[in-house]
């Protein structure tokens, strides 16, 4: 347990040192928030009601789907994995420590949006903040599940970048944060529901906060976690039992 906690703390520090994760988890989402927040609230004053939710969904999706998979591929697609195994660290530790660390970073980034948006753009603060953070946590966890799956599926960084974009772009465009998803053709609206962003936006916007929104996020996370478990098992299967 001590090694696991040290690993999480260490991963958190390494994420801060890594400029790429800082860019995808903080810089770009917060810049997007600063620019688009101003545009949204100036052309659509009503958008301030859901600005925090929409920018949070955008930021979390970007940080998770674009930022996390390359870091995972750096471990599982290279000799780092063998190094971890050879020196007594279990195969799952890279996935879990990186996911927990990313969860904390994404929570901090979401907290910054929550704190700044009312001051900068007179955005409405969601009612019941503890409950908001619980829903936010569920959304981040589901998004990180997909991120984990992507990072472990593809070892080639160039192909992985494309795969991440393929997941991220429809996730955002079909989530309803840019325009109401009800305006989309039926099949695109349904396609959007495959990604956590659509459910996360509904959940955070208080348009729904019941089992109907939590359950899909749970199913998405469960499916992704299952794929990750299978991939980890396959990786360990290529080698013998360790120690």
């Amino acid at each position: 347990m001590e090694a696991f906690l040290y690993g999480i703390g260490l991963q958190f520090k390494m994420d801060i040192r890594s400029r790429s994760l800082l860019v995808t988890c903080y810089l770009v989402p917060l810049l997007f928030f600063a620019v688009m927040g101003g545009i949204f609230t100036s052309i659509m004053p009503d958008s301030g009601d859901t600005l925090i939710q929409s920018m949070t969904v955008m930021g979390v999706s970007m940080g998770a789907l674009i930022g996390v998979p390359p870091s995972l591929a750096e471990i599982y697609g290279t000799d780092v994995r063998k190094m971890y195994q050879a020196n007594g660290a279990p195969l799952w530790c890279g996935l879990i420590t990186l996911t927990v660390s990313a969860f904390i970073h994404l929570l901090i980034m979401s907290g910054i949006i929550l704190a700044v948006a009312p001051v900068m753009f007179h955005a409405e603060v969601p009612a019941g903040l503890p409950f908001h953070f619980m829903k936010l946590s569920a959304f981040i966890i589901a998004s990180l599940g997909i991120a984990g799956m992507l990072g472990m599926l593809e070892k080639n960084q160039a192909k992985l970048t494309m795969l991440c974009q393929v997941a991220f772009l429809p996730s955002i465009l079909l989530s309803g944060i840019m325009f109401p998803s009800s305006l989309l053709p039926g099949f695109l609206e349904k396609l959007g529901k495959v990604f956590p962003a659509a459910w996360g936006y509904v959940l955070l916007s208080n348009k729904g906060a019941g089992i109907g929104e939590i359950l899909p996020l749970g199913i998405i996370f469960g499916g992704a976690a299952l794929v990750c478990a299978v991939l980890l098992r396959r990786m360990s299967g290529s080698y013998g039992t360790w120690r």
């Binding site: 040290y6 000799d79 063998k82 190094m83 660290a89």
Partner: peptide, 27 residues
């Protein structure tokens, strides 16, 4: 057993001291 692999690597941003402490804890 202790193993030094032929091709091995660590995360780019880990410091040498941190790597030693991390794997000492796992062991």
């Amino acid at each position: 057993i202790g193993i030094q692999l032929q091709s091995a690597s660590l995360p780019a941003y880990i410091k040498a001291g941190e790597a030693v402490r991390l794997f000492a804890k796992w062991n």
